[in-house]
Amino acid sequence: MKKKEKKKKLTAEQITAQEFTNVLNIQNNSLYTRDGYVIGYIKILPVSVGLLSQREKETLVKQLTAELSVEKEPFHFLAISRPVDMQPLLESYAHLRNETSDPYRRELLRKEMENLSDFTFGDEIVERQFFFYFSMKAAEDVERDLKKRISEFAEHFEAVGIKTEILKDQDIVRLCNLVNNPAVVSIEDEMTDASIPILKGVI
Rank of each mutant, 00 (worst) to 15 (best):
K4W: 07
V126E: 02
L52D: 08
S30I: 01
I15A: 05
K43C: 03
D171Y: 00
K147Q: 14
E190F: 06
E73V: 10
Q129I: 12
F119V: 07
S117H: 08
R149M: 12
S92H: 14
D123L: 10
P197Y: 05
Y32N: 03
V184D: 06
G122P: 00
V47P: 04
Q87T: 11
P103C: 09
F134C: 13
G36I: 01
M191Q: 13
N25P: 00
Q87F: 08
K57C: 14
A138N: 14
K111H: 07
V173P: 02
F121N: 15
L31T: 07
E165H: 12
T164S: 00
I125G: 09
E155T: 11
G36A: 06
M191A: 13
L68Y: 01
R97D: 03
E127N: 02
P103W: 06
Y32A: 01
T11Y: 12
E58A: 14
T192R: 10
S186T: 13
T100C: 07
V23Y: 00
V202Q: 10
R34G: 13
T16H: 04
V70R: 06
K62Q: 09
A159H: 12
V185Q: 15
N22P: 09
E5Y: 11
I166P: 00
A94E: 14
T16V: 01
K2D: 15
K72L: 02
L108K: 02
L64Q: 08
T192S: 09
A154Y: 05
I42K: 04
Q63N: 14
I162F: 03
R105V: 11
R106D: 02
Q54A: 15
D123M: 10
G122D: 06
K147E: 12
I162H: 02
E91F: 01
S101M: 05
V185E: 11
P103G: 05
E71K: 08
T192I: 10
M191D: 14
L178S: 07
L109R: 03
N29T: 05
L109T: 01
A194V: 11
E158H: 12
K147F: 10
I162V: 12
G161K: 03
P74V: 05
